[in-house]
Simulated scan of single mutants.
Amino acid sequence: MSQLDQLHEVTAELYEHVQQPPKSIEREEFIKKLSELLDKREQLISDLEGPYTDEGREKGQEIIRMNDVVDKRVSFHMKQLKTEIAHMKKRKTSNQRYINPYQSVSTYDGTFLDKKK
Rank of each mutant, 00 (worst) to 15 (best):
D109C: 05
Q3A: 03
L48F: 01
V18N: 09
I25F: 11
V105Y: 02
D54R: 04
T93V: 10
D39K: 06
E62Y: 11
R57W: 01
V105K: 01
T11S: 10
L48M: 02
Y102C: 09
A86K: 01
Y52W: 13
Q6N: 02
P51Q: 14
R97A: 01
S104D: 10
L4F: 05
L44W: 04
Q103V: 07
E49R: 13
V18A: 10
G60T: 13
E55C: 04
L44N: 14
E26N: 09
K89N: 09
E58Q: 11
M66N: 03
D71W: 10
Q61S: 11
M78E: 01
K79H: 04
L7V: 00
T111I: 12
S24R: 15
L4T: 12
D47C: 04
L34M: 09
V10I: 03
K116T: 15
I64F: 15
S75C: 13
G50W: 10
F112C: 05
Y52H: 10
D47W: 05
K89H: 02
V105F: 04
T83R: 15
V70Y: 13
L34S: 11
R65W: 04
Q80Y: 15
T93I: 07
L14N: 09
E26L: 08
L48Y: 02
D71E: 12
S104Q: 10
H77I: 04
L81G: 00
E13P: 00
T11I: 01
P21A: 14
P51S: 14
P101G: 06
N100D: 15
P22T: 10
L38A: 13
G56E: 07
K90S: 10
D71P: 13
